[in-house]
Design a protein around this nucleic acid. Structure first.
Lengths: 216, 216
DNA sequence: ATACTGTTCAACACTGATGTATAAAATTGT
DNA sequence: ACAATTTTATACATCAGTGTTGAACAGTAT
């Protein structure tokens, strides 16, 4: 379609910058993947929205599948850098990691979502850089004397990651101002820290609550 | 393809049962939507996997879009019934709702996932039956004297729902035995209840922890 | 200037899906 | 027995995407 009709806007003199072109493609790709999932991603649409020719996209990424893979890899690295730092001094205090995670996810909700879909569908999750770091963090914390006894680390990890990633999606942080986004991240971090410090129930109101799960 | 080649397996004598046919289609549709998202759903594939003719699928659901809508509506109703009961006596104790939710999501992880995608992309979330019920539940609990002060109800709701739905996906409950699934649901409920009762941190180890969110 | 690389454009063969249409078979209700 | 409904089987027009190719063009580096 866009191939047969002459471009209405004259072909923008795209400064040659393969790195930027690649990033532009990856960014649009991530955005679309977050919206409709990896299976629905089309190279045509990515190229169109990124303002590059479809041929260019195929030049950088040979096939659709490779574009999907490159996008998820790229996102995972971005996320690791943003949450744990660039390798210099790792930021490991649990409350700091939580805050970083919340802020990153609010700023880039599509990245979080892409990462979530990626990790859920990966055969071997230890292949993922971010997950390895996060898991190490959690295990270390749970084993430390700063944590309560009997925490289920895996449930804990899944709970924190899934809610941190989906909270901004729920709040539609994409269409918010920077100030609103800041407040969203803070709301999340605040409530999570409150929960982690105090819990939810007033224990005295649940004297009979056996710890075994209930369901009808 | 399957339309031009004669079927190798003889056409199964499909007992006429429009209700079951409809449900069979919806079930497959939900499964596929959970895997690849609504945008990637194809009527052809659904019909094939459901073992019905493509024409039949179009007979029950006029267009692809309508199939998507019907599927999400159907899932939302199923979920409401499973978690809150069929309208008779509503099951409202928070720990029971949590247990029901965990068990439902572990048994039918695809339904939870479909519902999650649906609710996240809905303009007006109050249109959704399950969400209305759940929100009412949460608001009532947070306002009660059984709950701590200062709980952020919205963060709480998103946290519980997102983790309950994604926990079975993470654990790949689909490929587990009934016993394993039971244990998965119990693990989740147990840790959540533990968290809700005690929190995560030993407070005495964090005397300096200001409540304001931290990030670097 | 020349060679190289990134980028654009247009065309092509192919696949697979949508939505429509029509006829026929099978099952059920009356 | 008859009518209505459900299901199958085909066919067809249409559209959108994939992956490939070849030629041209535009900056960049040597």
């Amino acid at each position: 379609m866009a191939e047969t009709t002459p471009p209405l806007t004259r072909p923008r003199k795209r400064r040659r910058d393969p790195e930027r072109t690649r990033e532009a493609i990856l960014e649009v790709s991530a955005k679309l993947m977050a919206k409709d999932g990896p299976e629905a991603l089309s190279v045509s649409q990515v190229a169109q929205l990124a303002g590059v020719n479809r041929g260019t996209a195929y030049h950088h990424f040979q096939t659709r599948e490779q574009l999907v893979k490159a996008t998820t890899d790229w996102v995972s690295e971005k996320m690791t850098a943003a949450v744990f730092g660039d390798g210099e001094q790792p930021r490991n205090r649990p409350e700091v990691v939580l805050g970083n995670l919340a802020h990153f996810c609010v700023e880039y909700p599509e990245f979080g979502r892409v990462w979530l879909v990626r990790i859920l569908s990966m055969e071997d999750r230890n292949q993922d850089h971010f997950w390895r770091q996060f898991k190490t963090q959690v295990d270390r914390f749970v084993a430390s004397d700063a944590a309560h006894e009997g925490i289920d680390a895996e449930v804990h990890a899944v709970r924190v990651l899934s809610s941190a990633i989906l909270w901004p999606v729920w709040m539609r942080s994409r269409s918010a101002t920077p100030e609103e986004r800041e407040e969203m991240a803070n709301r999340f971090t605040r409530e999570m820290m409150r929960l982690h410090l105090d819990g939810l129930f007033r224990k005295e109101k649940y004297p009979d609550l056996e710890m075994m799960p209930t369901h009808v």
